[in-house]
Nucleic acid binder design. Sequence first.
DNA 1: TTACAACTTAGAGTTAACTCTAAGTCAAAT
DNA 2: ATTTGACTTAGAGTTAACTCTAAGTTGTAA
Lengths: 134, 134
Amino acid sequence: MFTISDVAQKSGLSPYTLRYYEKIGLLPASKRKEGGQRYYTENDINFILFLKSLKQTGMSLENMSEFVKDGCIYEQLHFNSPEEIKPSITKRIEILSKHLIKMEMQKKELELIISTTKEKLAYYNSIKKGDIKT
Amino acid sequence: MFTISDVAQKSGLSPYTLRYYEKIGLLPASKRKEGGQRYYTENDINFILFLKSLKQTGMSLENMSEFVKDGCIYEQLHFNSPEEIKPSITKRIEILSKHLIKMEMQKKELELIISTTKEKLAYYNSIKKGDIKT
DNA sequence: TTACAACTTAGAGTTAACTCTAAGTCAAAT
DNA sequence: ATTTGACTTAGAGTTAACTCTAAGTTGTAA
């Protein structure tokens, strides 16, 4: 069982951000200790890491919320029981399919600019070494 | 020679955004027609597209400005004459190298989440088709 | 048991990156 | 020649996503 700062540490998100995500409904209400303090399980952390990777690949918080909501219990990095997931399945398939296409395009774009960047670097380095005289 | 809305069209950035980029010094002062209206060449557009791809892969406008500035004439998608580029070469190599590493990591991350997403989609689809009964 | 650090909340403030408004000028078509 | 629509500027407004503040509570180590 982990505190909010443990999770912050593990996820690279600040405690502020984690509370904010909960406030806007992107994360489900955390479990609480006696005194009211949040605690998190491994599963909670895995879910947070999954959301973080969606975010890193350009999904907006709003779009992520749509993925998470619909009254559905959030899943443990994908193995909730089928009957828990079923009501929101079509919606989820739709969102993930769209995002998948976006990510595939992103990957192509990324590969292109990586090679453009390598070319530029090679050019700059050749000038620096003096291979190209002025 | 292209107008600002031509460039907007070609680059996917709005005229507002193009003027804004110029205002903050991310783009060099545009050439103007008689009446003061901006016009752009193919080279200008290529440079704008290069900046756009840097942005798409997560470089901040501030970081891009650093790349562009240093009093240097901006380059035509990489072939300014060496003597124009030389003063800012070390800085540019530094920025691009850092960004390259970031992009390589991003690519790995992207590949990982693409495959995770595919798995999830396969799982959802199998529930939808009824292969997994409740 | 007393510090002291980390937690809690609601709500305010910040930052990056646009995005628009207002008031006016310019250009193309009728 | 006049209308229509795109252009110009400075500066204000917006949005997403945090990030912090204040005031108070809880947990832990000496």
